[in-house]
Amino acid sequence: MDVLACIKRVPDTGAKIVLTDDQQDIDTTNLGFTMSPHEECAIEEAIQLVEDHGGEARVLTLGPDEAAEQLRTGLAMGADEATLLETDGDEWSPRATARAIADAVRDGDGVSHDVLLFGTESADAANYQVGIRVARELDLPVVTGSKDLEVGDGSVTARREIPGGQEVMEVDLPAVVTVKEGINSPRYASMRSKMQARKQSVDRASPEQASGPGTFEKIELVSPETDDSEAEVLGDGPDAVPAVMDVLRDEVEVL
């Protein structure tokens, strides 16, 4: 069984996000880069599926040359191969991203992998649609937001949380599944595997940016207004308990 995990390189933001002067991007001068926790779980799930069923796990991203760093994280975790769909660093729309990924995995009338994993939404743009659009481009079934995955004979059963339980979907392979953090606990790569991943080759392609009818374009990024009013300090240590009781009773009214 061959499994693909698709990821996205994003800044590793701290407590406060700082924007560039032209407000087009996050100022990454002092930031490292990472991927969404959902996507770390997608890589882990791909590796586990291959451990259980055989085959190969491939990690793929669309992004600038530097995004090879995140692919090497996937290789160090245990993915067998990596693909970089290289861009000039501009942000691609979900539609153009999905078309490029679909083209990369299309194989004759079929697709190159049995399971195509994505995070449910990216950490930065959070458009909630790349996995769905890839599936529809390739005419594959898709399940989103999965927190449990079982691959059986030619099909995959996915569960996702709803209030009070889980809803269960079953689709035939090949299929697209978008996953959420909590589906597994991503392994840490050892220093040795990180060193080895540095030497592994990354397959590269430079897709064309495809568009379609309609446009959706960023004008600028803005930091939302925040509430700067400080909390009312009710006291220090256990001595604060009577004041807390008053607040719970009279102001928050939960007693």
């Binding site: 996000i17 924007l19 996050i26 743009a125 009818p213 309609g214 446009t215 959706f216 374009e217 960023k218 004008i219 600028e220 990024l221 803005v222 930091s223 939302p224």
Partner: peptide
């Protein structure tokens, strides 16, 4: 973060 964007379709 808030993104201001233009949607035409």
């Amino acid at each position: 973060l808030v993104e201001r964007a233009r949607l035409a379709a």
